[in-house]
Design a binder for these strands. Structure first.
Lengths: 199, 199
DNA sequence: TCCGATCTGTAGCGGTGACTACAGAAGGAC
DNA sequence: GTCCTTCTGTAGTCACCGCTACAGATCGGA
């Protein structure tokens, strides 16, 4: 397919990154079309031609964000070695990710679990959270099957604790917790899962 | 001071409760004056005469909510007995509070740690969270001083873990976690604080 | 009964939100 | 160059937001 008509005057993927930054910082409702056009350096008709409406742009940005997060999960959880080490590395990585200098603090998906008037967006956000939670549950069940969990420890309950920690760390980083504090919490939490060489 | 002029046609404290319910469910931005007047059964001028503007009403509602939460904290944390038992009871109580049938799910203060365009309200919310966090820190330091903590356990780090759990449980209840799941998490978290009679 | 004070209902103000009609600009095909 | 297609900028539209002017209603006090 050849390029027909006047070519677009801006880079669509760069614009998407800018929109990600804006939504991640300010959320959906507080990010106005005027905000976006100012940041992306384009006028409303260009934005609407390229991305559809505000909701569609947000959903596309959300997919971009989520895909990257899942890639990070794949990388840490599928690393060779004990599952406990992988989970510990994941929590540490998330603590660092939530406190990355230059990026908005906390998780875009978690911090927007928020009362808003956009049911379809809320549903999508909840869907993404639920999918991460489900992945943690699968991981913990696999660990239990492999005998990597204490016999009296329910894998679903452990997954719930880890997920709760992820959500809480996200909120705390939004509230200004620094990297060291988050890392400390990530490490402390892992003490509820005793290493295999324990009495 | 005698009642001068035409008396108010509605119960102010009942209206406050209704407004609390509305803000708690939907947040500040998504709760419009129209929503409020519909729920309280009054017209805008009555609302403005009784409460000032929308922000003032929200702040008053917030104080009402927070005072109740602090009363709950006082009750559980100042109970006689070991501090560990008090914290365990607090976490269980919060798990139950966040999943009380008939009430909005999660914590009003925590779930609104949200990107929004109202800096003064955000600041107030952050202030309330920070004050609870500080109280947990004081409690853990007192426990450490009293020798109720393992010697190698940092009281501030423990307080951070507990606070992280509170924030995370609030999010999870918003996402539909039921009472049993939250209670299980509350109990699991307490295993990072070994009871005194441990090897 | 009249007055001043306060509340209530109607009706609408000014501002901002998302979104778009329309005309001109910039490319490829011929 | 001419035509067709697509993008861009101007300049709005329409809806909804928080908020309020104003007139009528309802009280206590004289």
């Amino acid at each position: 397919m050849a390029a027909l008509g006047r070519p677009r005057g801006f880079d669509r993927t760069v614009a998407l990154e800018d929109a990600l930054q804006a939504f991640w910082e300010q959320g959906f409702e507080s990010t106005s079309i005027a905000d976006l056009t100012r940041r992306l350096g384009i006028r409303p008709p260009s934005l609407y031609a390229a991305f559809g409406d505000k909701r569609a742009l947000f959903l596309e940005v959300l997919d971009l964000y989520y895909d990257r997060f899942v890639r990070f999960l794949d990388l840490t959880l599928e690393a060779p070695g004990a599952r406990r080490d992988a989970i510990a590395a994941m929590l540490l990585g998330i603590a660092r990710f939530y406190s990355t200098p230059g990026l908005p603090k906390g998780c875009m998906v978690n911090t927007m679990a928020v009362p808003t008037g956009e049911p379809t967006l809320l549903a999508r956000l909840a869907e993404l959270r639920s999918s991460v939670q489900e992945r943690l549950r699968r991981e913990m069940r696999a660990a239990a099957d492999a005998g990597e969990l204490p016999r009296d420890m329910d894998p679903d309950a452990l997954a719930a604790v880890i997920w709760t920690t992820v959500l809480g760390m996200s909120m705390r980083s939004r509230d200004g917790a620094d990297r060291n504090e988050l890392e400390a919490t990530a490490r402390s939490i892992m003490t509820i899962w005793p290493p295999p060489d324990d009495c």
